[in-house]
Amino acid sequence: MPAIFDLLPFLLDGLWVTVQVTAGGAVVAAVAALGAGLGRLSKYRVIRAVSATYAEFFRGTSALVQLYWAFYALPLLVGLQIDALPAAIWVLGLNIGAYGSEVVRGAVLAVPKGQREAAVALSLTQRQCLWRIIIPQAVPAMLPPIGNLLIELLKSTALVSLVTLSDLTFRAKLLRDDTPDRVLEIFCLLLLVYFLLSMAITSLVRGLERYLGRRMDRVRSA
């Protein structure tokens, strides 16, 4: 059945948007997750409150509602149109970042208290302690849940097809309108492409885990 693959070039035209939103969203999510995750552990009440509010807000409202709100309501509020692509990257990135902040928080809290105390005894500054002692030990523990969140991010990029962005799903819908009799092939192919993308992300994260594997062993047994 090679016939199915004549649909592929048209479908894959949407791949670039999907990849852009996933990659851009991942960067936004990483920064937001680190900021809010560490922010929730800050000694300053204000920073804790802001971080917690961000996380609760984005986790509590639905991703699609956030996307529509940014796309339809926000321009009315501020009086200017926002480009769909950056809006999508920001919204989905901040959404996943809110979940990521929990991962960061948990991993940082899981670093034994003695590590912090040793850093104090050696006169390291708080910043040195965070970046040289705590984070390097927390990162390996974060990787598996981060892998899951990246898959969630990839899946959520399908939503951008609902705000006029021409991603994989959007192209599939166009194809369906053109060739309704091939709808089975179209959507099987679409599912397959997403599945392969997920596999790619999974193996990327697994590779990173292996790369840090020696380090993880150390962390576990210390």
């Binding site: 899946k155 990029t157 799903t169 599939a172 709808v183 089975l184 997403y194 997920s198």
Partner: peptide, 19 residues
Amino acid sequence: RSTPLLVQLYFLYYVFPSL
């Protein structure tokens, strides 16, 4: 788990009738 819910919904709603 690796594929988007939205696409799965389309599959059920648009593809199933053809089956």
